[in-house]
Amino acid sequence: MSIARVAGTLAAVALPLAWSNVVLPRLGLGVRGRTAANAGFATGYGLALREGPNWRSRGGVGYGILAASVVTAGYGAALALPSVRRFVGAIADRGPDVSTVEWVAVHIPIGTVYSEELVFRGTLDPLLDKAFGPRAGALLSAAAFGFWHIAPARAAGDSVPATIAVTTVGGLIFGGLRRRTVGAAAPALLHLAMNAGGAVAPRLARRLEGSFRER
């Protein structure tokens, strides 16, 4: 690999990390501003690198719906079990500045899923696969996805090492789906189900617990 190509690939990895952990936090935007800024950055990044997310890959939607259904069923089972439901209900809200409907219908699909899937699975994954091969590319992209979450973890008061570890594993899973379906649709649908379920489940759990206490 030429020096120019190595430098270009490293810049492609570094740019999203600088955006998420340095530039975006310093803009001081509210949740709506962050959603718009993230979507704008992701769109520009994807257009500049021209890899293409291939949202309509053959089988991508089917695999994505299947994976999302499994996650949704898992959330349903958690809400049905009293001990697990109480644990889920104790999880803090992640979208305190907006309504649940707005959070789930706008900010998760656009600010998180669209932005992150376009940057990582739609653009960086294929770029790194071409540069380093599928195995090394998968590891590098997943690690970058993990480090993308440093500033969000700090803002939420979460453990940074734990967040990096969990999101890196998530990046491997999402990347595996992208490689299997040759597109970003399947990981995007799984990502949406996980994040939307994570936003809705704690609130549903608290309502269910409250209704049981009133009986």
Rank of each mutant, 00 (worst) to 15 (best):
S83L: 06
D129A: 00
G89L: 03
G74Y: 03
L124Y: 00
E102K: 00
A73N: 00
A184C: 01
R121V: 04
A144G: 13
P82D: 00
A188I: 01
R179L: 02
A153T: 06
R154Q: 15
V98Q: 10
V166E: 12
F87G: 03
G183V: 03
E102R: 14
L128D: 06
T163H: 10
V88R: 03
F132W: 15
P109T: 05
V119P: 09
V70K: 00
L118F: 05
E116I: 00
V70F: 07
E102Q: 14
G122D: 06
L177A: 02
P152G: 05
V71D: 03
R135Q: 07
I150K: 13
D93L: 12
L128P: 08
A136Q: 07
G157S: 07
D93F: 09
V101C: 09
A144F: 10
A155D: 15
V182E: 09
G111K: 07
R121Q: 09
A165H: 06
A136K: 13
A80Q: 05
D93P: 15
G146F: 10
T168R: 06
A80G: 12
A105T: 11
R179K: 08
G111P: 10
V169Y: 06
G146V: 14
A184W: 03
I108G: 01
F120Y: 14
L177P: 01
F145D: 01
R154M: 15
V88L: 13
A165D: 08
V166G: 10
S141G: 13
P126W: 02
P187Q: 01
V98P: 12
P152W: 10
H149T: 12
G95P: 12
T112C: 09
V166Q: 13
A92R: 14
D93N: 14
V98K: 09
P187H: 02
P134D: 06
G95L: 14
D129S: 00
A77C: 01
L124H: 08
V88F: 09
D125F: 00
G122A: 05
T168P: 09
P161A: 11
R180M: 05
E102F: 13
V71E: 01
G157T: 11
A136H: 10
L189E: 04
R85C: 04
P82Y: 00
V104Q: 11
A105L: 14
A151T: 13
E117N: 02
A186M: 01
R179G: 08
F174M: 13
V98M: 14
L139P: 12
A155C: 15
P82I: 08
G95W: 01
A73G: 01
P109L: 09
V84Y: 11
V166W: 06
R86V: 08
A151Y: 11
G122W: 01
L124W: 05
Y114N: 04
G175E: 06
K130G: 12
R179P: 01
F147G: 07
R135I: 12
Y114W: 05
T163A: 06
L127R: 11
